[in-house]
Amino acid sequence: MSAGASNPEYVNARVRSRRAALFADEDYRKLVRMGPSGIARFMEETEYEREINQLGTRFSGVDLIEYALNQNLARHFEDLLDWSNGRVYDRIARYLRKFDVWNLKTIIRGIYTDTPAEEIETDLIRAGELEEATIDRLLEVDEIEDAIEVLGRTMYYEPLSEAYEVYEETGVLVPLENALDREFYEHLLDDLGRPSEGPDALYVEFLQAEIDFRNARNALRLARSGSGLDPAEYYIEGGVLFDESELSRLVTDYDELVDHIAESGRYGDRLSTALGRLRNAESLIQFEHALDAALLEYSDRLSSIYPVSVSAVLSYILAKEREVENIRAIARGREVGLDETEIEEELVIL
């Protein structure tokens, strides 16, 4: 937690200029017509210039674009944490912990597969709350157990220690990865209560949507896979769409699960088209696409209703993430030969 009084006005003022630099719809339309090298050149003339130039000697093609996007994202989000104090810092940091979780998972996977530290480091997105020194120390260890010890003074120590016992029994990383993801989601709503109005209410609603959508994705994936996994193990508390027993029951009946989401007052209308397609579709991808779009819609509301609250900052975070995902999707899509329509329909969310 950062010391000092909360400063949402200052952070929002700084964020506004950053938001203005985000790619507009017409930029995406231009990018969709370019090849990977054209996209890299285009990025060189924008916000991404520094990262493209910095990484240009080490990477090329779409890898250059992807690493430049990740590095740029990390730089912007680190700035947000630098600018903010007090409650604003706390609200931003708790959302950016997803990058800590990403980094910890990447490091643990690297240790698990004996990947050299330099290669692991390349894949990190240093945008979270964890200190640089902690990440550097993590990169030096050779055993997962030692990595957990390095995290001794962080919130991840306890869940990882518990999951480590299961990991030792099974030999697969699933318990460790799930413990990290669960830790992120379950602390999203810490100390926020259930405000009924004002910017906090909107902020909480957004985070609840994030948790609900994650629960919905996991439930649908479990229902589809027909695996004997215990749904309760993947249930995240804090959402409004399911409670634990409901989710465990619904996972066994795919159609009922889809009905339950469709009948939800909060999300039913937003997701009705995607849910209609989902009943007969073989793939969950379109539904996940619809969830991403719905979440983005939420984030737009966050910025427009309370423009100087932390919600507006969160909205910027989501918009920036979306920009990175869109550019990466276009570049990768072009690399593998997808045509403009396919990229626009299946990949880009505007």
Binding site: V172, R217, L229
Partner: peptide
């Protein structure tokens, strides 16, 4: 099945499953 692929379910998507 999902639980045997090594990666955590909460942090991944149906795209990776597929």
């Amino acid at each position: 099945d999902l639980g045997q692929r090594g990666y955590g379910i909460m942090g991944t998507s149906a795209r990776i499953d597929e």
